[in-house]
Computed example of a mutant assay.
Amino acid sequence: MRRSLALLGLPLMMIVAGCAPVGTEPDESGAASGGSGGPQDRPGAFTQRAAAVAQAWQPDDAWTTGFVPLQEPTVLVGEPDFTPQTKTAFQAGWYRATVDLPDRKPAEGTVRFPHGSTRVPLVSAAQAYRELRQGDPGACPGPTDPAIPPAPAPGGGPDGAVGSRPQGDCVALTVTRVELGTAPVHTTRGAAQVPAWLFTVPEIGAVVARVAVAAEAVATPPAPVPPSGPPEPGLVGAQDIEAIEGATLRYRLGVGSCDTEITPLVWERDHVIVVGGTVVPPTGGCDEMLNLHPAEVTLKAPLGARPVLDVLSGSPLRVAAG
């Protein structure tokens, strides 16, 4: 059965760079010393599968020459001041605009990579907003409802507050300004500065950027080639990347509700990184819930433009939306 998804609020777990827990070093064949094929050798099983995933990875030319984003096209610029309601609105794409949104396409823009750049066609502010906005709060007045007053001008309202929202649990975020700029985006060629429409949203105290690159200039990652055969029991895969800070990589493992001894693992080479983890599965019954468990590993060198692949599927991981 396919597991349904839930968030698991467990503490971060750390492991030193490599592909086995402290005290078990993999030999040249990929097996970890100190194990004999049983539960103690789960790190060795991870190493073998990670090496197979890396060997099967064959990206096309677009991976190194084109624009292939590895995160969603909506990016936060600045540190948002979320409330539970505005966080829900951001994740759901609930917006209302109080400014004119030009429907004219601007001239070409430039995606700037750590090494090199690419000229790309852009979309209009109106199209970017249509892609950004996914609807209205379900049980609350929508953006065109007269129950939602327009946002006051900056400095207006009680205590100089900017923006307004309907009463209740659901809100729509207010766009009070839009301009063409750039936003940081994780790509197959490393961290890039990408043309983006910048929407000012007073309710969260940050700018919501929507990548302005036209669809025809956005390439897609190649299809993954997972290793043949099922994974060893106790191996779990990575779902996405939460953050990249120098040589620190934070990602989320997909684990079961009753799994224990959750251990993140990383297999690192100069051209590719494979991540996943191991668990001790339950011996009795359990639900079918898939939980996202935060994990952290320290790489031997900063990530750079290296792909991060999931040990189970072989898929390149994307950076999770804010």
Rank of each mutant, 00 (worst) to 15 (best):
R2E: 09
R3W: 07
G9H: 15
P11E: 07
M13C: 11
I15D: 07
A17H: 14
A20Q: 06
V22K: 13
V22R: 15
A32W: 06
A32H: 11
G38R: 13
G44W: 02
G44A: 03
T47R: 12
R49P: 12
A50T: 04
V53H: 01
W57A: 07
D61V: 14
W63Q: 10
V68W: 10
P73D: 01
E79H: 15
E79M: 14
P84H: 06
K87C: 12
T88E: 13
A92Q: 12
Y95L: 12
T98G: 08
V99M: 04
D100E: 15
P102M: 06
R104L: 12
P106I: 02
T110Y: 09
T110N: 11
T118Y: 10
S124Y: 12
R130S: 07
R130Q: 11
E131T: 12
E131I: 10
R133Q: 14
G135R: 10
G138Y: 15
C140R: 04
P143C: 00
D145T: 05
D145G: 03
A147C: 07
A147N: 11
P149D: 02
P150E: 00
A151S: 15
P152Y: 04
P154T: 01
P158N: 08
G160I: 09
V162D: 11
G163Q: 05
Q167E: 06
C170A: 02
V171L: 02
A172F: 05
L173H: 08
T174G: 03
V175K: 00
R177Q: 14
R177H: 12
G181P: 11
A183Q: 03
A183F: 00
V185L: 05
H186T: 04
V194A: 02
A196Y: 02
A196N: 06
E203D: 10
I204Q: 06
I204T: 08
I204V: 14
A206R: 04
A206V: 05
A209Y: 04
A212K: 08
A214E: 11
A214T: 09
A214D: 14
A215H: 12
P222T: 00
V225S: 12
P226I: 00
S228W: 13
G229I: 03
G234S: 08
G234T: 03
Q239M: 13
D240E: 14
I241V: 14
E242V: 11
A243D: 06
E245G: 13
G246S: 10
T248Y: 04
L249N: 02
L249D: 01
L249C: 01
L249G: 00
R250Q: 13
S257D: 09
C258S: 15
T260C: 01
E261F: 15
I262K: 13
R269Y: 06
H271R: 15
G276D: 05
G276T: 03
G276M: 05
G277A: 03
T278K: 02
T278C: 09
V279C: 07
E288M: 13
M289D: 13
L292Y: 04
H293D: 07
H293G: 03
A301C: 03
R318E: 11
